[in-house]
Design a protein around this nucleic acid. Structure first.
Length: 200
DNA sequence: AAGCGGATCGTCT
DNA sequence: GACGATCCGCTTG
């Protein structure tokens, strides 16, 4: 039986590419969160790419600010923002330093630590634990103060991503959701038929 | 089944 | 001072 927390995380070069490329490559990988010595894990089943300065829907579109500076930094770091007064959302920086691309993690399939996730989310319904960007941050104890700027390529980090050899099946490509600008770009990627994607 | 509005606050105009 | 890369519960059909 494999233990997720012992697997070497994906390297920084994995995140060095265009957001669209990193987004599709992240599908099927496993997100690991170490929280109070508990191992929480979920398979990434839905993501969105944000392109930076040329993408009106990106937080980086209007340039670098204290809030979004992680997006302009080197690849492989967590960008966590607080939204609608109550939710956190998780992204990974990609592209070389100075280029502000990112990937939003939109949904996970829970793999380990489900008891803790249920406690943090306040529900026992497994399909409601991590099937949305705000939901998964609640389930994994991810907030800006705890996780923004964390290096997800380091095995000592409280958040990282690993490859467990999972064979991704068909990938669906859709427009992004929840945005008002650049709404037609096909930059949302999800595993076909997965029960844990958002807005089913 | 689908649509609407409330919650709630950091960030930037 | 407005609004947002959301979620949930309530209303209506």
């Amino acid at each position: 039986m494999l233990s997720y927390e012992t697997i070497e995380p994906l390297s920084r070069s994995f995140y060095l590419l265009r957001p669209q490329t990193v987004a599709t490559a992240l599908l099927g990988k496993v997100l690991i969160r170490i929280l109070d010595d508990i191992v929480l894990a979920g398979r990434i089943v839905e993501v969105e790419a944000y392109l930076g300065l040329e993408d009106a829907a990106s937080h980086a579109f209007r340039g670098k600010t204290p809030r979004n500076e992680v997006l302009f930094g080197p690849p492989g770091y967590a960008y966590v923002y607080f939204i609608y007064g109550m939710y956190s959302c998780l992204n990974f920086s990609c592209e070389p330093e100075g280029h502000a691309g990112g990937v939003l993690i939109r949904a996970l399939e829970p793999l380990a630590g489900l008891g803790k996730m249920k406690q943090l989310r306040g529900t026992d319904d497994v399909e409601l634990l991590t099937s949305g960007p705000g939901r998964l941050c609640d389930a994994l104890g991810i907030t800006r103060s705890l996780i923004n700027g964390v290096d997800v390529t380091n095995i000592t980090s409280p958040l990282r991503v690993v490859d467990d050899g999972f064979d991704v099946g068909e990938i669906h490509i859709r427009p992004r959701v929840g945005i008002r600008k650049a709404v037609d770009l096909p930059l949302r990627f999800l595993l076909a038929g997965n029960r844990h994607v958002s807005r089913r």
